[in-house]
């Protein structure tokens, strides 16, 4: 077996809630509790859970937007939270993210080409115009689209732009947080197919987060079910669907219509 691309060891993240009473200690919300996972290069791991299950916090931990209170996040063998700020910024070219809201994830005041090239500039790469053209083509948009502003595109096209930006640095890992949830079914299918295409072309590994088990099941080799910050079941997608061990997984299966 190849060396894992991403490893989480016993990762927990807690938030302190606003104080409700002066003398009582503030309540603590455990958003992610002792989660471990590994992801091999080119593989897709699905994370399913309802709202408040901690799946988005897990994405932020993988992206090193937040530090875990316990545990380590290893990417290509390095502890991301042990890196200096500058080294972490350079390391980011290897792991990128796609967000849920295609309207919010692009700066409305910047041309699309500018936004797509942003990760290149930030990590000190060159040759951006040609590369931008290349990724636009890869995600099924035209090179001329680089000159337009986000509001000129539909939701699905914007999500293509967001994906173009995420893969422009040729990352090894893509974190997709509810990346197709805001889209209509027919557009959702286009984006899912695009992600599968990119994955095969670029050997991309993916952490695919969604509340929709049907979507996760169609794109992921393995999946992990979360509830209230805990990982309650993990395994091969086909096994999980055929014989869920946990009652909660079973109820999600029923709800998704599978």
């Amino acid at each position: 077996m190849t060396a894992p691309l991403l490893e989480l060891h016993g990762v927990s993240r807690r938030y302190r809630m606003p104080r409700e009473a002066l003398l009582r200690p503030p309540a603590v919300l455990t958003a992610v509790n002792n989660v471990s996972l590994t992801l091999a290069p080119g593989q897709t791991l699905g994370i399913v859970g309802e709202s408040g299950s901690g799946k988005s916090t897990l994405a932020r931990l993988v992206m090193a937007f937040e530090r875990p209170d316990e545990g380590t996040v290893l990417f290509e063998g390095t502890d991301l939270n042990g890196l200096s700020a500058g080294a972490l910024r350079m390391a980011r070219r290897r792991f990128q993210m796609v967000f849920q809201d295609p309207y919010g994830s692009l700066d409305p005041r910047r041309r699309v080409g500018w936004s797509i090239a942003e990760p290149l500039r930030a990590t000190g790469a060159t040759d951006s115009p040609a590369r931008v053209k290349q990724v636009l083509d890869q995600v099924g948009l035209r090179a001329a689209d680089a000159e337009k502003y986000p509001h000129e595109f539909s939701g699905g096209q914007r999500q293509r732009i967001a994906i173009a930006r995420a893969v422009v640095t040729r990352p090894a890992l893509l974190v997709a947080d509810e990346a197709v949830s805001a889209l209509d079914v027919s557009v959702q299918a286009q984006i899912l197919n695009l992600l599968m295409d990119l994955q095969e072309e670029m050997g991309l590994a993916m952490v695919f987060i969604s509340h929709d088990l049907a979507v996760v099941a169609c794109i992921c080799d393995r999946m992990l079910v979360m509830k209230h910050g805990d990982c309650i079941e993990a395994g091969e997608t086909s096994r999980l669907i055929a014989s869920p061990r946990h009652e909660y997984t079973r109820s999600l299966l029923v709800a998704s219509g599978l």
């Binding site: 967000f99 994830s105 942003e118 990760p119 930006r165």
Partner: peptide, 13 residues
């Protein structure tokens, strides 16, 4: 906003 998170993911300070 998400586009700020995206800029952070891109590696900007």
């Amino acid at each position: 906003r998400d586009f700020v998170a995206a800029a952070r993911a891109a590696g900007h300070g």
